[in-house]
Design a protein around this nucleic acid. Sequence first.
DNA 1: CTGTTAGCGCTTTCAC
DNA 2: GTGAAAGCGCTAACAG
Lengths: 334, 334
Amino acid sequence: MTIGDVARTAGVSVATVSKVINARYGVAAATSRRVQDVIDELGYESSLVARSLRSHRTNVIGILVAEFEPFSTELLKGISEAVADTGYELLAYSAGGRAGREVGWEQRSLSRLGGTLIDGAILVTPTVVDPHEGIPVVAVDPHTGPSGPPTVDSDNLAGARTATEYLLGLGHTRIGLLGGRPDLESARLREEGYRQALAAAGIAVDPDLVRVGGYKPDVADQPAHELLTLPEPPTAVFAANDISAIRTIEVAQELGLRVPEDLSVIGFDNVPESALCVPPLTTIAQPIRQMGAEALRMLVDLVAGVEREPHLRLPTALVERESCRRLDPVAPGS
Amino acid sequence: MTIGDVARTAGVSVATVSKVINARYGVAAATSRRVQDVIDELGYESSLVARSLRSHRTNVIGILVAEFEPFSTELLKGISEAVADTGYELLAYSAGGRAGREVGWEQRSLSRLGGTLIDGAILVTPTVVDPHEGIPVVAVDPHTGPSGPPTVDSDNLAGARTATEYLLGLGHTRIGLLGGRPDLESARLREEGYRQALAAAGIAVDPDLVRVGGYKPDVADQPAHELLTLPEPPTAVFAANDISAIRTIEVAQELGLRVPEDLSVIGFDNVPESALCVPPLTTIAQPIRQMGAEALRMLVDLVAGVEREPHLRLPTALVERESCRRLDPVAPGS
DNA sequence: CTGTTAGCGCTTTCAC
DNA sequence: GTGAAAGCGCTAACAG
């Protein structure tokens, strides 16, 4: 079913059908109606692909992700809510599982779709972003600094400091850090916040207590295990994201440790999964859905050529649940 | 940056570049290497759009949704996990906010993308599905019966019966039903399960207690309010999905009712949001991620031409949290 | 007002 | 082994 079928059925040329579809001037009312009737009758819808190849305006916004995991899907919900009245449609593209390992998925996806299919793109946690893209781009939680494309992120530094101070306030001094993807600026800032809070409390960072996690359950597995089987293990762990925090809790439990009695764990992100975990995870909340909504608004403005402040940073907040506990004032035997 | 640019830089024709990209025979090793070098150097990626228009095989699976809400995004997570080793990429398409109201978004999206962009599609809670599509289609939680395309769903009837029996077991007899989208078979089955459980307990259904909710918070608002302000209100409500269950709890709280002390509420789906609600929602779990994974596997087989049982029904299970409570044996004053 | 024509970027015969 | 040419479904000049 193509525009040609419609044209033939209506007894006009494809050009005329195209004009009717796109509400261009220069079509007689009678012709227009007849064509419209045929379109309705046949249930014809123009191919987004063919149209985009030619016209370079599609009314579709792309969301480019490495994978559909809790963070990106949460963002998607926020974007979806915000898109409602804009007239845009949404196309979320994941370069398949391979992308997790393969760097440069952002550029690849952008090249594959950017030329024609989408009018603008939201890049979710991209590592590298070529500043001179063909289409407007907004990056959420990117690696880039203030240069590069417009960005939306949250206050990772303050959030990490809050997390660490919270643990400190609970009497913990041996606090482990399970870091995030090293290629992400947010992960770097979270580690920095951890170090700042410790320094402010006059506690030296024990290098043994600092591990690189990642952002996937299986990647967090080994470093979490190492951390918890140390000769002098931490009494609390700050994991740089909820997924690795949840995995840390599971590893602790496999090791016979009770959370929070024997080990306190705090995460970062506040993805819905953090509430489903047993015990429910105490974490630093990012306003993920709001970040998505803001990224979309920013991008829509960009596509429309509206000037905007190019960087938006949203606040984080502590969400207390049940995975952290005050350290007993005197450890038995000490 | 097009294939033409690569061809010019490498000093060959576009046809040759195309052959190199697609690993076709008939290219000299030296030429192939030279072209490959240019591709790498320029960072060229072929346009999915242009390629798909011509070749009709893209290695991309489409997931067509009305909206990115908790159910569809949960499904997306399951699909994303399952796609990892298949070599397919994922393209989730939402017809924008308008779709919620507009019926037929499934057909429209399918027509727009199906011709060329995607090799197969997973339709999420579609209402109408034209059986003779151009590409393989799997429907998740569809309206259709056993005819129509292959489907994946959960045992809605048994789940609804379980939910109602659970409330009955807690001593409730005035149990309200906040139904789901009337155009969904799953909603019909959930109501049916409710009726069956009540009948089995020898309780007549009070028509006042049966309301049509929908699947969006604001749609559930009014019927929930009506239900709770009845002269003789229910002591428990079975909402046909978590989103309207959560909204019911909020409405109850606005009305000064405590949940679960004054009102028990049970949902259906077990989306992550149900655990975040206050109090955490007792609900009937569908294995949503697994449903997504199975739908993907089914579709991949379909695309590959493998024969399969066309309908898969997964079991549901009660998840007890804190929104339901045993009814006091004797109501005060009665 | 309407139809013819020329591409968009790519793949695919089919000559050379 | 390589390139010229046709065409996927559509839109955008331009003639008629």
